[in-house]
Design a protein around this nucleic acid. Sequence first.
RNA 1: GCGGCUGUAGUCUAAUGGCAGGACUUGAGCUUCCCAAGCUCACAACGCGGGUUCGAUUCCCGCCAGCCGCACCA
Length: 504
Amino acid sequence: MKRMDRYDELMSLSVRKGFIWPTADLYGGFAGFYDYGHNGALMKRRLEDLWIDYFLHLGEDYYLIDTTSILPEASLKASGHVEHFTDILVTCTKCGENCRADHLLEEATKKSYEGIPPQEIDKLLAEHKIRCPKCKGAFAPSKPFHMMFPLMVGPMGKDPAYLRPETAQGVYINFKREFEALRRHLPLGLAIVGRAFRNEISPRQGTYRMREFIQAELQIFFNPKTFDSSIAFDDVQSSELLVARADKKDQGGADRATCSELVKSGLPLFYVYHLAKVQDFFLKELAVPADRFRFAELGEGERAFYNRIHFDMEVKQDSLGGFKEIGGVHYRGDHDLTGHQNTSKVSQTVTIDGETFIPHVLELSFGIDRMFWALLDAKYEKVKTEKGERYVLHLPPKIAPTQVAVLPLLGKDGLPEKAMPIYEQLAKEFKCFYDEGGSIGRRYARMDEIGTPYCVTIDHQTLQDGTVTIRERDTAAQKRPASSELGPIIGKLLSGQAKFESLP
RNA sequence: GCGGCUGUAGUCUAAUGGCAGGACUUGAGCUUCCCAAGCUCACAACGCGGGUUCGAUUCCCGCCAGCCGCACCA
């Protein structure tokens, strides 16, 4: 299927069924912003909960914290964002072309102008006689373009601040507090699931590049000399990872390499271990097909200067034209804590077993909205039937917005009266949907399309012996337990403790 | 941000300088003993603003949004 056809198909599902749509589309939309509807909000919440449950169990001292979306300028100066998250743009007075001033200077002089002060730019451009690369026109005075949204806080607006461009800084500036509160243990994991904001020049491709988006990030603080020895590497050493090294990732696919092989190739043991855990999350928890997942290594010139090692998680999405980044695993060294120590003048060193050092950071960073969309792309399937075709959203049961539907086979003969108490009972425990309108096939199809994993049907036999049918979404197979056992059965099916085919 | 294309019910689409039509969906009812069956009825749209015109969904301009290409994405 062509990319846009698939994209339109998914966006149509999203809009029709209450997953996601453009913010303020009542007013024509708002580029780079999306709202979640009732199914989308539930699914997103479940995805976040699954992420939290999985990643906080990677270590003993791993916790969720929650920090503000607005940060004072000083903290973002220390992180480098005020300086490096700004592009100096110059506009051609003749053809209107926008260019990055530092790139023009670098091209002309072959020197780096990373983070050059804006007031220097115009002078330098004039000195080197740089003109528009397209039409040779002259440039208007340069303007800084800030990827961060600036705010003026307080009644006089005198306190400069920004909407956070990433959640990570909330963790770094709270590290010392949590290190004390959690009684000076390393490794220490601190996670945030929350919103981040970037004033993208050109938001495109739906939820792929948004101006307000949700990150799930785990920052692991550790002693680089001892971290490897605390890792249970035996658990993963023979696991195969799907990896595209920097020189090969343009070819589109991925190679399989065991964790041991990757360590032999020079990657740190702790780093490979966490790659394995991240891959398990995608393949086992989210059930992304193996041929749609890979780690893509970022080479020297592609990664930020402070990232010593950087692999992105990528999921192949037909709606976006191939493998697209969902998140990254970044070994950031002591860059962040050192930066905050230098600016705040508060020591970020720790002393453990007589050794004093600044902890290193391994960052596991995920875009929730991107994962959300990738799941729709990977799981929404057109299925041919005898009479035509229908759509099934094969979401993992843990992520499905509605978990079970209760459906009387007919809207008469006392079946609704029998079904209602069953629904009320299940609704105490699960997100449960009741529907008695229209043919049973139509109601199954409706549930299939929003990914409801199980449907319970009340028929005439129920009136006689109290049994009901449970129908599984992906196979349409049915089982027939007593209605009194439904609660425990569905609970086990949803949590993965029981398999449908092994039900009696 | 630049250039090109586009914008009609929830979705997909038709036509038109003079009452905007259909299909699917949705809702109500009938029917129906397990996978979008059938019948009846109903709800529901010209992205926003301005201009030309007796009259604009249609032509023109601006804006917004989407797509493609470029640029951008520490």
